[in-house]
């Protein structure tokens, strides 16, 4: 038996919104420690890895590990039936071929349940090596979203250049060029507005805008985003979920032909 109850059900809606752009289907691995998911987009250029720890749920029971393969478009249709203030419970029997979502209003006066068919997905799990990144940038997630959106008007790719002074995002295209520079700024009133750079050595890497824009669907999940970069290895874009876990995206840098 698997059962996970989340009073803050809107969080689950936001998590799904953050991955359904990139993934049509994925397997939610449910274990005693929590729920995890790892999947590449269909072109195998980017990867989503998320973790929702069991202690972040209001009630969590997982007698034995279950893999819940889901069509995420269909899951999103069902999640749209939950209001933002609903309590959401996910339930599945061991070896079941369906999963049940229960939505309760805060006053318990309306309870809805939706049963969805599960899929048998052939999932390939990738080993992600531990990396000491040359640059780690922490910045407001809304700012990162804005920069990705703005520069994708200019070109298909964004060059992210990081030094200890700051981080620069650049794009070039038929119409011209655009650059956005952010200075390191830890002395702000609100922690979430800070731009903090931890640099071992400077890096400059090129990434496809369309994937970065998909990653920014996770913006409502966290006030800050963390970009981890090293030469010739995939970028990690991480959104931390308070007291719960994380959503991470990996994107291979473009290379000169």
């Amino acid at each position: 038996m698997f059962e996970a109850r989340l009073v803050q059900g809107a969080l689950l809606k936001k998590v799904l919104e953050s991955i359904k752009d990139l993934l049509n289907e994925a397997t939610w691995e449910c274990a005693a420690t929590g729920i995890s998911l790892q999947a590449m987009d269909s072109s195998h250029v980017s990867l989503v890895a998320l973790n929702l720890r069991s202690d972040g749920f209001d009630k969590y029971r997982c007698d034995r590990n279950v893999s819940l393969g889901m069509n995420l478009t269909n899951m999103a249709k069902i999640m749209k039936c939950a209001s933002n203030d609903d309590v959401i419970t996910i339930k599945a029997q061991d070896d079941a071929d369906t999963v049940t979502f229960v939505f309760e209003t805060p006053n318990q006066e309306k309870i809805s349940d939706y049963e969805m068919k599960l899929m048998n997905l052939d999932t390939e799990h990738l080993g992600i090596p531990d990396t000491d990144y040359s640059c780690i940038v922490k910045m407001p997630s809304v700012e990162f979203q804005r920069i990705c959106r703005d520069l994708s008007q200019i070109g298909d790719s964004v060059v992210i250049s990081c030094t200890k002074e700051g981080v620069k995002f650049s794009a070039a295209g038929d119409l011209g060029t655009g650059n956005v520079k952010l200075a390191q700024n830890a002395n702000v009133d609100k922690e979430e507005e800070a731009v903090v750079i931890e640099m071992q050595e400077p890096v400059s890497l090129t990434f496809a805008c369309r994937y970065l824009n998909s990653f920014t669907k996770a913006t409502p999940l966290a006030p800050q985003v963390q970009l981890s970069m090293s030469s010739d290895v995939p970028l990690v874009v991480e959104y931390k979920l308070e007291d719960m876990g994380y959503v991470r995206y990996y994107l291979a840098p473009k290379i000169e032909d």
Binding site: H44, V45, L47, E124, P129, S157, A252, K254, I255, E256
Partner: peptide
């Protein structure tokens, strides 16, 4: 011009 490699170049299947 630049080329977009896939993640299989960096991560190995387990």
């Amino acid at each position: 011009t630049s080329k977009q490699p896939t993640l299989s170049k960096f991560f190995t299947a387990q």
